[in-house]
Amino acid sequence: MTLKSTASRVQPGRLIRFNKKFYNRESVAKAARQFKGLARLEIDDARASINVSVFVKDKKPFDASLIADEIANRALAEMKAIL
């Protein structure tokens, strides 16, 4: 009898680079925080950009690319609210 693997397979993630000239760190972080329940998010503050890596585990309803796009939209909305 073979046992089924219960380990969840991590899907390939998606990296999105937010140019610091257009997006600030607070806006990106605030946008990313809204999706932390749906994916594993890694925010890296680089010299010229804020890099957000999105990793979605199996059995999650949305894929990484969709979440990345949504984060980008939310970050833009935050920037518009600031200006």
């Binding site: 140019n19 949504e70 980008a72 939209n73 833009l76």
Partner: peptide
């Protein structure tokens, strides 16, 4: 924003 995913770069 409601119709598209918008991203700024450059």
């Amino acid at each position: 924003l409601d119709r598209a995913y918008v991203f700024l770069d450059g």
